[in-house]
Design a protein around this nucleic acid. Sequence first.
DNA 1: AAATGAACCTGTTTGC
DNA 2: TGCAAACAGGTTCATT
Length: 273
Amino acid sequence: MPELPEIEVLRLSLEPSLVGEEIRAVEVRSPKLREPLDRPALESLVGRWVVGLRRRAKYLLIDLSDERTLVVHLGMSGQLTLVAGTTERVVHEHLRLELSSGRALRLVDPRRFGLAFVGESAWLARDRHFAGLGPEPLAGGFDGGTLAAAAAGRRGPVKVFVMDGSVVVGVGNIYASESLWRAGIHPGRSVARISRARWDLLASQVVAVLGDAIRQGGTTLNDFVDGQGESGYFQVSLGVYGRDGELCPRCTATIRRQIHAQRSTFYCPRCQR
DNA sequence: AAATGAACCTGTTTGC
DNA sequence: TGCAAACAGGTTCATT
């Protein structure tokens, strides 16, 4: 479900309501996620309050008053929402934090590819979940040179390359297709056959498409909602994703679908080379 | 080292 | 209508 823009939209939507909230109770309702929830660690958050929200790659970082951070990853189907504290429990509600305002923060994840764990704020960068991650595309310093350097000695398809979190973080299946379409690069092209000028173009389009998606509240295909339960609107701006058989908005050729590394890729066979 | 395929899950859509 | 197959936004592990 969520790529970088969706997590950033979630962070922005939760921040004003969540900062300053004290955690009054923790309910681990079903510990079965990608890694089992650590019940004692999560329950030890009671009495702490939220001091800030950050994002690293597709992880949401909820910084707490005791120098620890609650890390949440939504996997493919996770939702993290603020609800009224009295709200009934729902299916696949794995974790629930009761807050001082009377509301609750609820993590729901049917497919269970998500994560939630507690770490020392100062040591998160060394945590195994973060240690191998590449640069943030929306932070300064990410450009065509970053991509060209990472591509040295590699030969695989650029679609798979740009989704590799050790190259650059946050670009998932939707925005990989979209940024390649905007850059006019064929997703199956080997990274060994991409010029420096085209790496520059791709990097700038990655930055542009992620920024556009954030400004439009993210992409809601089936179930993405922000922390207040609101859907995003970027899906109407998608150029190729999910549009095989339709006409390319740029050149009117027919958009095609292809599989790369077991994931659907959408592209225009005429204006992407 | 890099590339590839499979695995982890449930829910919804598609096709016969 | 009903059932089975295909498919879904992510990450990690094993195998070439």
